[in-house]
């Protein structure tokens, strides 16, 4: 059974909780003015679930503020023995991981389905 929450405002478009997994579907542009919202959403999801998947298919742009928040939440997930997975990065967003040499630090999957497999 899944619990799906949709949100028409902000960068979290929907949250789906299934078993021990929460999928956060992100959307829009992740930059400094919305990183607090991202951090809160991921931290909250990690309290709910063992595995958190960030579906970033609809994220059009992310800067280093967003990336810093990703690193922070990844470190938090490790401290809490949780898994943070990222799925659906387009090349534009993926490039910031590559420039910062962080693409191997995260669990990155091409699709949400692959992240859940």
């Amino acid at each position: 059974m899944s619990i799906i929450t949709t949100n028409n405002n902000g960068i979290v478009k929907s949250q789906t909780i299934t078993g021990n997994t929460t999928i956060l579907e992100l959307t829009g542009e992740i930059e400094m003015n919305c990183v607090m919202q991202l951090r809160e959403a991921v931290m909250e999801a990690m309290q709910e679930s063992k595995i958190v998947v960030l579906n970033m298919t609809e994220v059009k742009f992310m800067d280093s503020s967003g990336l810093a928040t990703m690193v922070e939440t990844l470190q938090q997930s490790k401290r809490q023995d949780k898994q943070l997975k990222i799925a659906g990065l387009n090349q534009r967003v993926k490039s910031i991981f590559e420039i910062s040499r962080l693409e191997t630090v995260f669990d990155i999957y091409d699709t949400e389905k692959e992240a859940l497999a």
Binding site: T69, I96, I99
Partner: peptide, 18 residues
């Protein structure tokens, strides 16, 4: 230094890389 995995401080590196 990018070997130090931590949040923040990446902006200047990104500018110089690009």
């Amino acid at each position: 230094n990018l070997d130090d995995i931590k949040p923040g401080g990446l902006g200047v590196h990104i500018i110089k890389s690009i």
